[in-house]
Structures are given as C-alpha cells and as structure tokens.
C-alpha cells in the first residue's frame, strides 16, 4: 500500500527544492575541499612566486625524513591500535551479551567514554601520566598498598616516543571502544541463540562453540570494526597532538607544517597522502576479505 502511495508522490522537481540548500552546501564544500587539496598539493612556492601544477611539493614532502618517520609511526599506530580496539570492543560486547541484573545500567555506562570529548580524555591522560608525580607513576612504582611495584623509578611517559604514542593510542582506544562494542554487540545479537543450543545438543563444548559457531558468524561485524577503526586510526589527531607533540603522526604533522612552518602546500600534500593511505588500506582490506571469502567458500 505504501508503495502505491509513493508512486503518487513520484519525484517532481518542484517538490524536491527543499533538498537543494543542504545539497548545495555539502557538495559545494566537497568541491572546495577537493579543489584546494589538489590545488595546494600541486603548487610550489618559492620567493613569493607560485608554480602550478608541479610535483615539487609532493617530492619535497616524500623525501623529508620527518614525513617518512611520521608515516611509519602512523602505520604502526594503525597496525597495533586496530586489533586493540577490536579486542577491547569484543570484551565489552561479550560482557553485555550476558544477562545480568544491572545490564541496562552497565550498557549506558559503557557508552560514557564516547560522550567524553576527545580533548578531555587527552587532558586526563596528560594528568594521569604526568612525570614524575602522576597517578600511573605512583601506581607502577608501588606507592599504593594494593598494587605491586613494577618500575624502580618513574617514567617520563610523554618524553619517550614509544610511550607518548602508546598513551595516545590508549586514549583513542578508550574513547572509541563503545563504537566497536556496539557494532560487535549487534553482530552477537544477530546470532540466533538456537544455534548455540543446536551446537550444544551435538555435543560441542564451549571452545568448539566459540571457534566454530560464534567466530564465523561474527566475521561481518568484526570486519566492519576493523575497517572503520583502521580508518579512524589513520585520521587520529587530538590524542597525539596533546600527548605526543614531539613525535608526529601524519595528522599532527599536517598541523605543525601548517601552523608552525606556514607551509600550506606541504600540509595539503601530507593531507592528500593521508587520504590516499586510507583509500589504499580500505581497498586492500576489502580485497583481502574477498579473497578469504572465496577461499573459504571453495574449500
């Protein structure tokens, strides 16, 4: 019936005009972003003279050691952070998948990290990982009765590349874990509980049930998490900006090139490369998934 009605309201240009302002706005900015990004990356400025089009800016960026270092660090950030997000999200989702008394309350609680602004989370980590007198240092050097000493002396977390990027990653994973959790939880909820019972009647133990029933059925939602989270990891800016200022990732490199060096061409080139990285990762991931799917179907 509703299909029939929709037919009466078939597309008529004079009825669709309310769509136009928003469309013009969004598409207009899309054009601006695209055009400026390409235009600036392909321009080179020297002594007040701008050359366009040229690959000199891109070449200069690519041969820059700081850029190479940032690219490598960002890639590591993605490679380590994405599985971490998946693991934490899966843990929370499995907790919520159970039935228990305060489930709804705990569910709401688990959404809180997403509601805390990233800048605030970063600030909090800034405080907690302070050197020498932050909570974390006191905890790990055994200053609290309930926790054993792991370190002999406080660590200057923000002063070390690995740790600075590490706590940035912790912040990012902590803040975004509700997203992974919700996607995985909806994946879990989509599994018919009768499947578990069916597997159990066939004598499958818990381990078999997880490996042979749950995991295969979770592949769609898990790959969604991996895809979306890896994109987010590439894009990350706020956490490393606050916590790892001295050790740039691509995002923070864009900022410092633009604001500190006033190099808008270089910053745009890095931004364009960042977009490229995301596109390549996405395509790569999708083709791996497709390959695996074919392979699984064949055998």
């Amino acid at each position: 019936m509703s299909e029939a009605w929709q037919k009466v309201k078939r597309f008529k240009i004079h009825e669709v005009w309310p769509l136009l302002p928003a469309a013009v706005y969004l598409v207009g900015f899309l054009v601006i972003v695209g055009a400026y990004l390409v235009g600036l990356s392909l321009s080179f400025e020297k002594n007040g003279v701008t050359v366009f089009p040229t690959l000199r800016t891109v070449a200069a960026v690519v041969s820059n050691t700081e850029f190479r270092h940032a690219l490598l660090d960002t890639a590591l950030f993605v490679i380590v952070g994405t599985p971490l997000e998946l693991a934490v999200g899966l843990f929370l989702a499995l907790v919520l998948y159970q039935q228990f008394r305060f489930r709804n309350f705990v569910r709401s609680l688990f959404l809180v990290p997403l509601a805390v602004p990233a800048l605030v989370t970063a600030t909090l980590l800034f405080i907690l990982f302070d050197y020498p007198g932050g909570h974390v240092n006191f905890l790990l050097t055994g200053k609290y009765a309930f926790f054993p000493a792991i370190l002999h002396a406080p660590v200057n977390w923000r002063g070390s590349e690995v740790f600075a990027l590490g706590i940035s990653m912790i912040g990012k994973v902590w803040r975004d874990m509700p997203i992974s959790m919700l996607i995985l939880l909806s994946g879990l909820n989509a599994i018919d509980p009768e499947l578990f019972d069916a597997a159990r009647t066939m004598g499958a133990g818990l381990r078999t049930r997880i490996w042979r029933v749950v995991l295969p059925l979770m592949i769609p939602s898990m790959s969604a998490v991996i895809l979306l989270r890896s994109i987010e990891m590439w894009k990350e800016f706020i956490f490393p900006f606050i916590l790892a200022g001295k050790y740039p990732l691509l995002g923070t490199l864009i900022e410092s090139m633009y604001n500190d060096w006033g190099n808008s061409n270089g910053a745009s080139a890095v931004a364009a490369i960042l977009v490229l990285c995301i596109v390549v990762t996405t395509l790569l991931f999708l083709s791996i998934m497709e390959f695996l799917r074919r392979k699984l179907v064949r055998t």
Binding site: V27, L30, V33, L37, K235, I254, S268, A271, V275
Partner: peptide
C-alpha cells in the same frame, strides 16, 4: 554525495 565531504579526515579537510 551528501556525506562524502565527511569522508575526508577532519585534519585533511581543515586545511582547504
């Protein structure tokens, strides 16, 4: 088409 401008990372679209 409407959301594609948001597919750019914020840190990339903020420069243009």
């Amino acid at each position: 088409g409407l959301i594609s401008v948001r597919l750019f990372p914020d840190i990339a679209s903020v420069i243009p």
